[in-house]
């Protein structure tokens, strides 16, 4: 559990960080909170010669809520997200989900950017961002570009981000209506056995709009358009929720691991989604 030798860099600007990533190419990795990368380095599963620490970059901090648009700096920690009242008001689902990530010690250090950019299917934020239809801002040697969260994830640890790019911020429209993040895990600190992020807008008693995303049930987060569609126009009654769960199940592809076999995970995915829909509907 001791990493091999590496050089440590701590740039104070995004340009500086991009320059280091460009200079060292394959040998460099950006590090945010480090909760995924450092264990991989200690296990010597990640070979990193140059570690580019983003913690000194002030421009990657901060939250703004303006004109219905929420922008979050990638280096905001989970703890800072939880503590931010403006964010809790604009998008309370972020606080609800963040409180279910690991434990307070981890959340003091773990960042939203690291959680999003690493591409680990176990992370909670990617599914949440797909649910919110967020946009990621990536900075690279040729300037910045934007990628939709729903287009970002390709496979486990493979994303639309290239090695010399840094995820600097995320942006989304503040959601309306009800919300819920339901997560089953074996213990504090564990990844989800299954988790569901749900947003519901109602028009009277009728479901007007939804967004649904599932976590740790495939090699990427799964935004379930069909599951959401099954609810729209319904009274969010049992048959509509049954239909949403039925529409979700074919979109996930869980793998057996110590959390349990495939059949169990599918069952729990259905339970989490059902509970999330019910709770979101009650808040809408």
């Amino acid at each position: 559990m001791i990493p091999s030798r590496f050089d440590y860099h701590r740039p104070d600007s995004v340009d500086g960080a991009v320059a280091l990533l460009t200079k060292y190419g394959d040998e460099a990795r950006a590090i945010a909170g480090g909760h995924s990368l450092i264990p991989m380095m200690k296990l010597r599963m990640a070979e990193v010669q140059h570690l580019v620490d983003l913690q000194g970059i002030d421009s990657m901090k901060g939250v703004s809520v303006a004109g219905g648009t929420v922008t979050i700096g990638a280096m905001m920690t989970q703890h800072e997200l939880i503590a931010n009242e403006a964010l809790a008001k604009a998008a309370p689902i972020i606080r609800e989900a963040s409180l279910q990530i690991a434990d307070p010690q981890v959340r003091y250090v773990g960042t939203i950017g690291g959680n999003l950019a690493n591409g680990d299917p176990g992370n909670d934020m990617p599914g949440l961002m797909q649910c919110l239809d967020a946009t990621y801002v990536l900075a690279g040697p040729d300037g910045t570009r934007e990628v939709a969260a729903r287009d970002f994830y390709e496979a486990a640890y493979f994303t639309a981000r290239s090695d010399d790019e840094i995820l600097v911020s995320v942006r989304f429209t503040a959601p309306k209506g009800g919300y819920a993040y339901e997560k089953q895990k074996r213990k504090i600190g564990d990844y989800a056995t299954a988790a569901a992020a749900v947003l519901i807008e109602k028009d009277g008693a009728t479901c007007a709009a939804t967004s649904i995303a599932m976590t740790n049930l495939s090699d990427t987060p799964v935004w379930c358009e069909a599951a959401g569609a099954a609810l729209v126009g319904s009274k969010l009654d049992k048959s509509a929720i049954d239909a949403a769960v039925a529409a979700m199940l074919p979109t996930i592809d869980p793998q057996e691991d110590n959390r349990g076999p495939v059949e169990f995970k599918k069952h729990v995915a259905g339970v989490m989604l059902r509970r999330a829909i019910e709770r979101a509907a009650s808040r809408a």
Binding site: Q184, R186, T193, R259, G260, P261, E263, F264, H267, V268
Partner: peptide, 16 residues
């Protein structure tokens, strides 16, 4: 008796 094993008891007993 972790989650999936308890779930499996219920499954095998037809409680789902």
């Amino acid at each position: 008796h972790d989650h999936w094993r308890i779930w499996k008891i219920a499954r095998d007993l037809g409680l789902h």
